[in-house]
Design a protein around this nucleic acid. Structure first.
Length: 478
RNA sequence: GGUCCCAUCGUCUAGCGGCCUAGGACGCUGGCCUCUCACGCCGGAGACACGGGUUCGAUUCCCGUUGGGACCA
């Protein structure tokens, strides 16, 4: 059986982590089985759906490197065409008509108020608040009312959902009432639209969040009523926030765009999200290729998992170490431009940017950290931290700094090893430890007490800035 | 409230009856390295929710309790 899977988000806002995980597992499953991955937009909630949201979802997936074989296209003017439910209205109507004709669905004219009243009544009488099928055997339309269409569900026996992750989950049919499949405004309801979509798109495996597990028996019944065998289901456990409730905005960053802004690399986020609910022995680090090779629904767990940003940062650090310096240089440069630290057209030399990035990589957990560490190298002026100044820029180091500045003026070439020699020549005769000179110089050059190795700093910062800043520090001491 | 799902260190997880005095990773922590901060390396604390079964033997199977979650209302 050929694999056809889909990711079907509602375009009502950002692409959040939960959505990414669902998309990722579908994508990995498709790529692993050399199947087809479809992106489909569930925009029947017209009031909340926007093209802007679709574009955000598309951008997010592209950023992560998830490509799809079938899906909507973004036009020149930003409009989104294809693979969206609002373009498929007549298909839903057609299928609903069919059920109606076959006596598997019926029109219902009950108003929301009436339904509500009867529900309360039932509740008060201790009966389950199910729809009472008042309209089931209606002979003629009720004048002045637009009907909804209800699915006639069976009220005996059980419906078994065969789930690749949960096993067989059974539901008593009498618990399920005759759900509305078409609203009075002519729009299909979620449970009906998904089934019609999945049937017409020949979806083989429905991989989605387990918040849909309870909807599944109804959908299974609709599949059968329509004359199709249901696809294979795989309900993924939820991703929770640190307080173990469903991950949401109040838990901090939940949208992919936020992870971009926080300075994450897409491969780090992908690796992290893949390991949420899925594992492959003890392995933590997976390239995209490995994920595709090793991914299997059998190794997806059942328990929900908490999103842990610390671990995601650790992975990001790992991938920053692995990344090509040219790529990192480009990304950091973008951030510097966004901050206005670098002006358009006045970009530093590319080779130099790479040199800079190389000395910053080791201690950067995010691109944003890297960008901040780059400031002293890029900006003309630095601000010297007061505490660092009083601690390290003391009168007794002034002569050492002066001597250093003088010597650095003539060292040729200005390389790590040569600089190290200069430091030794100043420090050794006096019986001082290197740190005695290195820390003050660090403060003089960067304004703070944290930086890459001081010889690297000097080499990359360049003679002019270095000498000027050391001399300025000497003056500062007075 | 009804239905359904879930339950191993703080977190992500390995474990698919004996290999478990429960392994790895993040985080935390002690040390080493060291020009600062990191990185790296070595070590440490830290979990099978509880109670019944089944079995020669349960983290692993079954039932219940408790606790979480989701959906429907």
């Amino acid at each position: 059986m050929s694999v056809r899977v889909r990711f079907a988000p509602s375009p009502t806002g950002a692409l959040h982590i939960g959505g990414v995980r669902t998309a990722l597992f579908n994508w990995l499953y498709a790529r692993h089985h050399k199947g087809v991955f479809i992106l489909r937009i569930e925009d029947t909630d017209q009031a909340r759906s926007t093209d802007e949201s679709i574009r955000i979802i598309i951008d997010g997936m592209k950023w992560l490197g998830m490509d799809w074989d079938e899906g909507p296209s973004v036009m020149q003017d930003g409009a989104v065409k294809g693979y969206r439910q609002t373009e498929r209205m007549d298909i839903y109507r057609e299928y609903a008509e069919r059920l109606l004709k076959e006596g598997k669905a019926y029109r219902c004219y009950c108003s929301p108020e009436e339904l509500d009243a009867r529900r309360k009544e039932a509740l008060a009488a201790g009966r389950p608040p199910k729809y009472d099928r008042k309209c089931l055997n209606l002979k003629a339309p009720v004048p002045g009312r637009t009907p909804v269409i209800r699915f006639l569900s069976s009220d005996e026996g059980t419906t078994i959902v065969r789930d690749l992750i949960r096993g067989a989950v059974s539901f008593e049919n009498r618990q399920l009432d005759d759900l509305i499949i078409m609203r009075s405004d002519g729009f299909p309801t979620y449970n009906f639209a998904v089934v019609v979509d999945d049937v017409t798109m020949k979806i083989s495996h429905v991989i989605r969040g387990d918040d849909h597990l309870n909807n599944t028996p109804r959908q299974v019944q609709i599949y059968r009523a329509l004359g199709y065998e249901p696809p294979a289901f795989a309900h993924l456990p939820m991703i929770l926030g640190p307080d173990k409730t469903k991950l949401s905005k109040r838990h901090g960053a939940t949208a992919v765009t936020e992870y971009v802004d926080l300075g994450f690399l897409p491969e780090a986020l992908m690796n992290y999200v893949a390991r949420l609910g899925w594992s492959h022995g003890d392995q933590e680090i997976f390239s995209v290729q490995e994920l595709i090779e090793k991914f299997s629904l059998e190794n997806v767990g059942k328990a929900p998992s908490v999103f842990n940003q610390e671990k995601c940062i650790w992975l990001n650090h790992h991938y920053i170490q692995q990344a090509d310096p040219a790529r990192l240089a480009g990304l950091v440069l973008e951030l510097l431009k966004k901050d206005g630290v670098v002006q358009e057209g006045k970009e530093p030399d590319g080779a130099w940017m790479q040199k800079l990035v190389r000395i910053l990589t080791e201690r950067s957990h995010t691109l944003v950290e890297m960008k901040i560490s780059a400031f002293p190298f890029i900006q003309d002026a630095i601000t010297v931290d007061e505490k660092a100044k009083t601690k390290h820029l003391t009168p007794e180091v002034a002569p050492l700094l002066s001597e250093l500045a003088a010597k650095l003026k003539t060292v040729e070439p200005l390389t790590h090893d040569n600089i190290e020699k200069v430091f030794s020549d100043i420090v050794n005769p006096r019986g001082l430890k290197l740190g005695k000179l290195a820390q003050p110089v660090r403060v003089a050059l960067t304004g703070g007490t944290v930086s890459p190795g001081i010889f690297d700093v000097i080499e990359v910062m360049g003679r002019d800035k270095v000498v000027a800043r050391i001399e300025a520090a000497v003056k500062m001491i007075g």
